[in-house]
Write a protein that binds this DNA or RNA. Structure first.
Lengths: 224, 224
DNA sequence: TGTCGGGTGAAACGCAGTCCCAGATCGCGT
DNA sequence: ACGCGATCTGGGACTGCGTTTCACCCGACA
């Protein structure tokens, strides 16, 4: 609902978040909130669309940047996804004080937690669409869906871990996680199709065996 | 908000969905909807909590079953996740007519699509918590988050594919997808400490080659 | 018969979000 | 400088969701 008016300065939304965090979300009427950010009730709804949306105003910017970054990038699909996702996190943590304030507000307000799910789902859609565009031919349909959801989930997990003080450098930790995650999907994201090579991925989880013993196991799997 | 009253017969909610789909969600007031399912406005809110929640009433049952299924199961983690997720889909498709009706209603109603995200997130939480319990020691933290999100995403993708008539047997298709998906996470979900078997995963993306030609490629990779 | 407790309906209320109108402000060409 | 159209703002009314309160009914039980 409610397309947000462009060009609203972000400081009003952080003022609104501060007010909500101090006085309580349910206890603050839209009129009081509008007054707190220095505008009338009418204008408040015109600018932010709703009482919830003012809390997530900067997600619009992050989402726009994400779309732009994926739209034209010189990076490989894997690198594009890793860096774009990390950049979103970096943008949201640019002002750590505001991030913690919003987290505290959301911790206290179930309605905002629900709303956040809706907001973050927009990222999932962007990721999924991009993956569908760049994935290799004959990639199964579930890949884009699950990887898109996974990227958002990993992002959120890193954000929460940082907010709870369990990691210091959220962006770096997320990059590592995303490298591992996308590694699982590499065969569908990277063109190994240098024609002379057969498209086979072998993942060896136990390095103890000799190549020959692994080959035996592979052979057994193949002929089963 | 609004804990739902227990023991409300499901036929009232399907009647409500039918009414909403026919007359339109926004155009139907809570009073008219209450009358359509044969109760007063007061009792309607007592029973269903809100106008949205009546649409997703049976998710409560599916979620409870999912939790119960994962709570005590004799299956391996991978099998438990695959069958439990598929069972949720089966339950939601038990009445195909109702499923299609709800889909049509949601297709027309953005507010309900948002609400659905909130509902399905509860499944993600259940999955993630279960995975955290059963995962192998020293599993990275992102595994549970991303796999939980992926299970929900795969479920939703299968449901949508079925609703759009692109697959006939949604549950079977989902099972296949989930087998592949969980295969990616197998090293963290299964105790491969059974010493006699070598832990090797081979994924063949080009079915054209004979087993022997694939073996050649594998051998080449291994010795590289 | 009295009364206790859970379920129901009726009515009033608070408030989010929409709509409409009237006034202010800004830009822009003359 | 002036006028004028376009855009933005504030005020007030309105719809409708969800809550609360109160009165009522009805079965259980002594």
């Amino acid at each position: 609902m409610s397309v947000r008016a462009p060009g609203t300065p972000p400081e009003s939304s952080t003022a609104a978040i501060r007010h909500l965090a101090e006085r309580g979300y349910e206890a603050t009427t839209a009129e009081a909130l509008a007054a707190a950010v220095g505008m009338s009730r009418s204008t408040f709804f015109r600018r932010f669309g709703s009482k919830d949306d003012v809390v997530f105003a900067d997600h619009d910017l992050a989402l726009a940047r994400l779309e732009a970054a994926l739209e034209d990038t010189a990076l490989s699909p894997v690198d594009a996804l890793v860096t774009a996702t990390t950049d979103v996190l970096r943008l949201l943590l640019r002002d750590p004080e505001a991030a913690r304030l919003r987290f505290e507000l959301m911790r206290l307000t179930p309605a905002l937690r629900d709303r956040e799910l809706v907001i973050t789902h927009r990222y999932e859609r962007v990721f999924t669409r991009y993956i569908r565009e760049v994935q290799q031919p004959a990639t199964p349909a579930w890949v884009a869906s699950t990887l898109g959801a996974s990227l958002v989930a990993a992002h959120n997990a890193a954000l929460r871990a940082w907010l709870r003080g369990r990691i210091a450098d959220a962006a770096a930790a997320l990059t590592d996680d995303l490298r591992d995650l996308t590694g699982l999907y590499r065969p569908w994201l990277e063109n190994t199709g240098d024609r002379t090579e057969r498209r086979v991925l072998v993942a060896v989880y136990d390095a103890a065996g000799s190549p020959e013993s692994v080959l035996d196991a592979v052979s057994e799997r193949l002929h089963r």
